[in-house]
């Protein structure tokens, strides 16, 4: 017990700080995203509406920032939940690798999906 408590894996500030920074980023970008999509948009929503909005560079940047920030925030949140379920040591390192892989793949997939309207 004594040795386990005293030997602790270092680090933890970056995931914690990253969660706060992305929280604020998501809060701002998601408001822009939701207001444009639901308040100033035609009902029902169509393929062409999305194209009209993404034609603006600012909206495109907003949505890409939202995608990246929310992926980090969500997957980092999943990590936090799993750590609280008792994951530590080797399991934690595997989890970190898996979550980064999922995050990068999902980000690439999301941007690839958006590019239909850009190109």
């Amino acid at each position: 017990m004594r040795a386990e408590v005293l030997a602790r894996e270092q680090g933890g500030m970056w995931p914690w700080l990253g969660q706060r920074v992305t929280a604020v980023l998501v809060l701002v970008t998601i408001m822009v995203h939701l207001v444009l999509t639901h308040l100033f948009a035609s009902v029902p929503l169509t393929f062409d509406d999305i194209g009209d909005r993404l034609a603006s560079g600012a909206v495109l940047v907003n949505d890409v920032v939202l995608l990246l920030a929310v992926l980090f925030h969500g997957l980092n949140g999943v990590r936090m939940v799993l750590l609280d379920w008792g994951l530590s040591g080797g399991g934690r390192r595997v989890l970190d690798i898996v979550l980064w892989a999922v995050g990068v793949a999902a980000a690439a997939y999301g941007i690839w999906a958006l590019w239909v309207w850009v190109s």
């Binding site: 602790r8 894996e9 270092q10 680090g11 933890g12 500030m13 995931p15 914690w16 936090m80």
Partner: peptide, 14 residues
């Protein structure tokens, strides 16, 4: 710092 600045320290506090 190494004792509390980690995920079994302050960052485990929610």
């Amino acid at each position: 710092m190494p004792s509390w600045d980690n995920e079994r320290g302050v960052y485990r506090c929610h």
